[in-house]
Amino acid sequence: MLNIFELQKELVCAALPSGLESRQATIIKNYAAHYCDEFYTDALGNLICHIKGPGKKIMFAAHMDVIGFMATFIDERGYIRFVPVGGHTPAYLIGATVRFENGICGCIQPDEKAKPGSTVLTDIMLQNLYIDIGAESYEDACSMVSVGMYATFATEPKMVADGNMMTPYADNLTSCAVLLSAMSEMVYPVNDVWCVFSVQEELGCRGAKVAANAIRPYMGIAIDLTRTGDTPSETDNLRMTVKLGGGPAIKIKDSSLICDKPVVEHLRACAVRSGIEYQDEVLLAGGTDASAMQRSREGTLSGAVSIPGRSIHSPGEIINISDAENAARLIAAAAKTEI
């Protein structure tokens, strides 16, 4: 078993948003190389690791891209406008610290049109936010950041109460750490195992789609985050039973797919046999790489193992370390149990 918190710290420092995953891919590759028979990077940037086995092909996919920002315009005083990469709620970005791919730091602020005090929070638009890097002029800003550069949340992982970790990009670097940890336990599996660290999930599961087409798995299992229903004032229409610390969740449905029964049953049987407490997940909004695998080629049996996380896509997502460790055990068991 690998140390999830330490791995998360290493990955968060390096990670870049969808489309430019090579930095986190390099770190993941260095770990994965020890645990697989062969690996390669495909045309889109997916890292595909193969652990040979005599049985049917099973594919695991954890996306390694993260959400972030891209600089689009630098104004005459050196303030930077940006577009989102992946899903953000603009109002909650106010005050967030960000780091560009070259290490330049700044923070997100609202302009005079955003009027967060008098606007319904959810109506605040991203085009009314800017990044302040402390530039003294347009030229000074251009010497630090150029249009097209990516930025990510600049906050660090931290352990908080009850064995939980607060971190940006638990979605989905923690799942990458979980898959790596599972791979370390997958020696001589009965199934033919393909572990994929996919790209561009946040832009519509693009990486997993082509990876699944290439691998042609019999069964596909995504590893990602899911919401929890254990925070104050959950509204009735978004209620869910999943909670932090209740164990990994086995997905039944989200808005992108209905998981195939054989996959759900395989995962449940593995959990029961390994003595892993799990939770049933019906997620009302959101999707994962599982949907792309399910609709690859002429169709693949698909499902997902999820790590419960509070406030997903915020710079302070909170997940439970033992949920993550048990997710890794569940995935290792699913790889080693005949399908």
Binding site: G117, S118, V120, M166, P232, S233, E234, T235, R310
Partner: peptide, 15 residues
């Protein structure tokens, strides 16, 4: 970390 209650988020409140 500070969070906004879900019910308050859905209530359409201004800042």
């Amino acid at each position: 970390i500070f969070r906004l209650c879900k019910a308050s988020e859905n209530a359409g409140k201004t800042g």
